[in-house]
């Protein structure tokens, strides 16, 4: 459910970008997905394939997913550690006073696209 909502907004964001930049076709979309963003990548790709044909500009695009490692900060011993491996409890001092530094983001890093032919750009 969560993935569907995100894909819906991703498609809308890309539609807007295509309009602004006068792009006729988007070839690839590179997303950076945090390890603990709560996004299931398999399901995300399925949702993407479902929405793609409904957006002409995205129709033939490829989705490239890059993972951002999740890192947690321990407030007790002031060290960082890998979130996925150790979870909420600090592996050094076993404190529970820990906070996620990065790894819950989902960012559109870049897109590859073709520009519209100059004649297709409406005059301002």
């Amino acid at each position: 459910m969560h993935e569907m909502g995100i894909v819906l907004h991703l498609a809308k964001t890309l539609d807007e970008t295509a309009k602004q930049e006068h792009l006729s076709k988007i070839g690839s979309v590179t997303l950076q997905v945090g390890e603990v963003s709560g996004i299931l990548t398999d399901y995300f790709v399925e949702c993407w394939d479902y929405f793609k044909p409904r957006h002409p500009v995205l129709k033939d695009s490829k989705l490239i997913l890059e993972t951002i490692e999740a890192v947690t900060w321990c407030d007790s011993c002031k060290r960082t550690y890998q979130t996925v491996r150790y979870g909420r409890e600090c592996p050094y001092c076993h404190s529970g006073e820990t906070w996620l530094l990065k790894g819950n983001e989902c960012i559109i890093k870049q897109i590859e696209a073709e520009e519209e032919a100059p004649s297709a750009i409406p005059e301002q």
Binding site: I6, H9, T13, T17, L31, K109, E112, E114
Partner: peptide, 17 residues
């Protein structure tokens, strides 16, 4: 094809709305 760097969150269109 040209590469456009966006560095935008996926929900940027929602943020604008």
């Amino acid at each position: 094809m040209k590469v456009i760097e966006l560095k935008e969150t996926v929900t940027a269109s929602n943020d604008r709305d």
